[in-house]
Structures are given as structure tokens and as C-alpha cells.
Design a binder for these strands. Structure first.
Lengths: 348, 348
DNA sequence: AAATTTTTGGCAACCGGTTGACAAAATCCG
DNA sequence: CGGATTTTGTCAACCGGTTGCCAAAAATTT
């Protein structure tokens, strides 16, 4: 842009990416490259004085090891992959954040790929990324159990919110949260409730439905499943008719997105929430308290989930011989967050 | 999957990560490793028939090039870094998605790092990631102009929503959207408006304020800046008192987060929106239509921004000699999305 | 002081690709 | 049909680290 540009370009040979190597350090410090390597990576192997000299030279040259050159013989890349179905789904934000923090703590870098809810995209992305990472965290995978096991055979895998034989997982227990939610509805006098279910293939969907059913029956309520549906705002909105038709006084939705969709459509159609219809979502996503009324929801500590997932993976990585069953169960559990979308059932 | 698995597992030494190399292919196909390399990477350089044979052998061995071995001599990693300030800020989701798509199209992998709004974190993450990527996209960096220029000297950088000398950028024009917003308020009879500003250091904040001021003055309105503030829900909420005190009938907020915070607090305090106070946000984030009333906002096509950012970076990468000024301005512009939070000004 | 053990640093091979140089083979030309 | 040209495959060096092995130097023992 300015006329000084020309001069600059001439004198500094601004060759991008020309970083210092151990050979430069060797030359500067007068030692052998292998000695340099040892001084930098195996403290103690080398005379303390030489080590200090070498480290000084390294600092002077602003040395940073080329990760590829390092990864080549060792096979370790200090990167882990995080595969998620839909990055715009607010559920993931906190998982990602928790994972980021845990990874950065140990000097690992997160490589994030999105499958856009498509299992072929996911397989492709995985294919591309797998060789560059030490391990994989699958957050909401669309892959089949067999595919997951196969990936697990290549690199350590940790599954979040899903369970597959032989594969490590981190899935916080829904039980308490669901029990509380059902009790909450029972206390409010609801007799007939519905579960607005998510995708048939979702492990978590089945988990929630089964738990819900068990608790509802125990509390003497009837419960019906409406679905399967896409786990989206739109699907929640479109299901209002079926909800109305079912005659229930309360709905638990597979996730907040669907809950919000349902709630807004109900309000738009003049159905009063919570007076005419109580709604409970899952996940406590960003924005679930923006609605009128704000959505009552079963909350998961997703940041913690992401954190524990990466911790488990790092554990697996550090300890070749660890088996998935050695991974401790997550410590945190779901809990009910009561906001405005639940109230006493209308008298029948 | 079948019983043949056992046999396979026995003879192939199922050592994790033991992938086929070009040497294996060479042995299997009877050619030299370098010939294999050429067949796979320089189509046409090799006799079509041999090329086919080699490719068949590669397929048979399920060959996938070791990216590190490849990156070492070429320096190219096919990865680009995406640095964002706060991954839980919904503004970024769509940027990330757009970037993902553009990157995947060209076989590039996105490495995402979050700086948690801290410039030291950001510098550190950048330090860690920089050697492993071909280029960097800075989405909401907390780095100083000088730091950015320095990074740009090492690897190609594309800035999103910010401008720094000598560095390529993608910043969609706010002008139309802001002009429309001001005109919208003027048409509704507002005479005195405020800008609830974001962080002082934000380039975009200054941009919006300057534009807003210019347009407001032109329309014969008075405008005041209230701030600076954190770009958060909480800050929006806390600023209500100052907004009330200012006596304005309409507020434009630096972003939707602040707009939503302000709107919800106003409603909570019994101030009617939009009858008593009109509010316009920026960004059209997820959830900005969940509020009651839904937030009127100046919408940016963030997915497109992410897309164009990566495209620009790829362009820079493919064409060493390209200078930042060769990057075309983004084609899309901001536009006003009128929802429910704006209405006629009360008569003074 | 000689023999033995331990420390220390250097040599060289290796990780798995890419690529310039070159010779053999194939194709073209007059 | 012989010489010039093009095509094709191989050799070998290189990218920047790591690491097993060994010899020289230093420290210890006898």
C-alpha cells in the first residue's frame, strides 16, 4: 500500500515460514543436532551446562519445534479431533468449550469438524482428520455402532452422550433430572403427558424415553410418545397439532430446540403456556430463557461433559493399556431447572 | 464383521495406526516408491496404465498418505486455523459453519481455537497452532494491530470484521443496514436515539457508531453513545438505567446479545417494548426471535462471511504473490430485519 | 597409576513422503 | 533407418526432527 513496501520486500527476504531448526541451534551453540534434540526433549540426559547453553541458543533463535518433523517418527501429534453433528446447534457450544479448556491445559489442540448431520460427511471428515490426530471425541455422531468400533480400532475414541460396546464414553446420567421432571409434573397434578421424541437413531432419545416412561408409570401417569421427529425448532412447531390431538396436559420434548418451537407455536395459536399446556425441554441451551414464558428444562452441564470427555481421552492416550471400562463414569448429573413453562394442570 | 475378521486380525498385526505407505504400494505393484508418489500426486506424469495399476494397489491397501510426511518437505498442511474470541457467542456459529464448508470443499481442515476473550490466551493458542497450519482466519481477535501484522508476516492471515493495514480482510458493509435502521426509526417518528456501544477496542463497534451517527444526523435526529460496555446480555441488562435516564425513545445496541438483555430487563421492569422503547440489535443471532417481542435487528449473513473469509485465505494460499488488496470486497451487505421490537415513537 | 564404570556427545539411520536429475525406452522426424 | 526428441521410471537427496549405538571423556574404583 505504501511506497515503503518495495524496500521492505527487497531487504528482508520475507520468506514465510522459515523457522529456526535444531540445526541452526546446533550451529549457533556448537553442538550436534542430536545433542540439541536431547537437551530440548530429554532434560537430564545432557550435561546441565550444555543444556543451558543450548536452551539459551534456542531462545535466541526463537526456536519452535516443527510439529510435523516431530510427529513423523513419534506418531504423536498432540491434536485431538472433535466431531459434531451440527455446529450451529447450541447444545454443542459448551461441550466444545469444555473440551477446549481441557485440551489446552495439556498442550493439545482441538480439531473440530462438523458433519452437518450427514453420516457420509462425517465418515469423510473423519477419514481426512484421523491420521492427523492422536484420538477422537465423537459428540453426536451419526455413525453406526460398527463404524464407531472400527474407528476405535485405529485411534482411541471417546463417545459423548452415547454408548457403544468396547468404546469409552462419557454420558452424564439423565436419571435424576428425569425423575425430578416427572415428579414436578406429578406434583402439579398432571395425569396424561407426552414425550415429543427426537430422531429414532439417537441413542440419547431412547434413553430419555425409557427413563421418562418408567418414571411416569411409577407416578401413576399415562405417557405417550409423539414422533420420531427431527431435533429442530421446526419439528417442534409442526408437532403442535399432534400434541393437541393427544389431549395431554404436559409435554416433555427431546430437546430445548423442539420445546421452544412447540412453545412458540402454541403461544402463536393462542394456547396459553403454561396454563393450558406445560412444556419441559432438555439441555438448557442458550436462548431457552428468552421465550415467554421461559422454558423449564432438564439441564446438563455440557461444559463439564466436554471437559470430562477430553480428560478421558487424554487418559487413554497416556496409558496405552487402559481399556474403555477403566474410564470412570462422569460425576455430574442432570437436574431440573424450573422456569415458567410448567404450571398446575387444568382440572380435567 | 464376518468371521474372516479373525484371520485378518492375526496376519496383519492390528497395531493401531499402522497405515499403508507408498513403500507398501511400491512392493505390491512392483514400481519404485517415487513412481508411486508421482502416480498419486501428479496425474499425467506417469503412464496411464501404470498409474491405474498403482492406484488399484493403493485402493487395495486402503492407502492414505501420512499428512506429516507430506507436510515436512512441502510445508503445506492443508489446515487452516480459525481463532475466535468466545465460542459460546452465537455470532460465531454461522461464521464457523460457512468457513467449514468452504474449507472442506478444498480438502482443508479447520482447526478452531478459542481465546476466551483473553489476548494472552489468544497469543498462546496462535503460537501453538501457527506452525501446523497454512493460514489463519481471525474472527474476533483481541490482538493489537501490530501483533496481527506480525502473524501475517509468518503465515497468510484473513481478518473477519476488522481492518488492519497490510492484512487481508473480509468485512461486509454495514452501511446499507445501518442506513435502513436509521431510516426505519426516523419513519417511525423517533427524534432522540441512543447507541448502546460495545467494547472500546472493537473495530466493529467504532464502525457502527460512526455510521449510525452520520445517518442519524442526516435524518435530523439526535444520537448519544451509552458505553462502552461488554458485548453481553448482562451488560445490556445493566444499562437500562442509563438508557432510561437518557430520555431517548429508541436504542440501537452494538449486538443482539446486548439488545436482548436490554429488552428483557425493560419488559421485566414494566417498560413496554416497543411502545415505550424501541430496540434494534445487530447480528440476528440464534434466539433473537425468541424474545417477546422478537428483536428487530440488523442482519449480517455470517455464514457467507465465514465462507468468503476462507475463500480469500485459500486464494492467498494458492497464489503466493497475491497481496491483501487483491482480495475482493465481500459481496453481501447488512440489511435490516424488522421484527417486533420497534414501533412508533410516543408523542413527546 | 591402571582398570573399570559412568557420563556425555556425536554418528547415522529412520519416520514417509516429494522432487530434481538422469538414463533407458519409446516416439518422432527427415 | 539413424539421429533428435519426448516419455517414463528410478536414484538419491531432502524436509526436521528422534533415538539406538558407540566412542571419547570424565569420574570412580582398585
Amino acid at each position: 500500500m505504501t511506497e515503503s513496501n518495495n524496500a521492505e520486500a527487497q531487504n528482508t527476504a520475507p520468506k514465510r515460514g522459515s523457522a529456526a531448526t535444531i540445526y541452526d541451534i546446533a550451529k549457533l551453540s556448537g553442538f550436534n543436532p542430536s545433542t540439541v534434540s536431547r537437551a530440548l526433549t530429554t532434560p537430564g540426559r545432557i550435561n546441565a551446562k550444555t543444556e543451558a547453553k543450548i536452551k539459551a541458543a534456542a531462545k535466541e533463535l526463537n526456536y519452535q519445534a516443527n510439529p510435523f518433523a516431530r510427529a513423523l517418527p513419534t506418531g504423536r501429534t498432540k491434536m485431538i479431533a472433535l466431531i459434531i453433528a451440527d455446529i450451529t446447534n447450541p447444545v454443542f457450544f459448551n461441550v466444545v468449550r469444555g473440551a477446549e479448556i481441557a485440551a489446552a491445559e495439556d498442550g493439545y489442540t482441538l480439531v473440530i469438524a462438523e458433519s452437518q448431520e450427514s453420516s457420509s460427511n462425517e465418515a469423510e471428515a473423519l477419514q481426512r482428520i484421523l491420521p492427523t490426530v492422536d484420538g477422537v471425541m465423537l459428540v453426536t455422531t451419526r455413525l453406526s455402532d460398527e463404524e464407531i468400533q472400527e474407528v476405535n480400532r485405529l485411534k482411541p475414541v471417546v463417545l459423548v452422550n452415547r454408548k457403544v460396546d468396547e468404546v469409552a464414553d462419557v454420558v452424564p446420567s439423565n436419571e435424576n433430572g428425569i425423575a425430578d421432571a416427572v415428579k414436578h409434573l406429578a406434583d402439579l397434578g398432571h395425569k396424561h403427558i407426552a414425550f415429543l421424541s427426537g430422531p429414532r437413531a439417537s441413542w440419547m432419545n431412547t434413553e430419555r424415553w425409557n427413563n421418562l416412561m418408567k418414571n411416569a408409570v411409577k407416578s401413576g401417569m399415562t405417557i405417550v410418545e409423539i414422533g420420531p421427529n427431527d431435533p429442530t425448532l421446526e419439528a417442534g412447531k409442526l408437532s403442535l397439532d399432534r400434541v393437541k390431538a393427544s389431549g395431554v396436559s404436559a409435554v416433555v420434548t427431546y430437546n430445548d430446540l423442539m420445546g421452544i418451537g412447540l412453545l412458540r407455536e402454541a403461544v402463536a395459536q393462542g394456547i396459553r403456556v403454561p396454563e393450558d399446556l406445560s412444556i419441559i425441554g432438555f439441555d438448557n441451551i442458550f436462548g431457552s430463557d428468552f421465550t415467554s414464558p421461559p422454558l423449564t428444562t432438564v439441564m446438563l452441564n455440557l461444559e463439564k461433559t466436554g471437559n470430562e470427555g477430553v480428560a478421558a481421552l487424554l487418559n487413554l492416550l497416556a496409558n496405552e493399556e487402559l481399556t474403555p471400562s477403566d474410564i470412570p463414569a462422569p460425576e455430574h448429573e442432570a437436574s431440573l431447572l424450573v422456569r415458567g413453562s410448567t404450571a398446575k394442570a387444568k382440572k380435567a
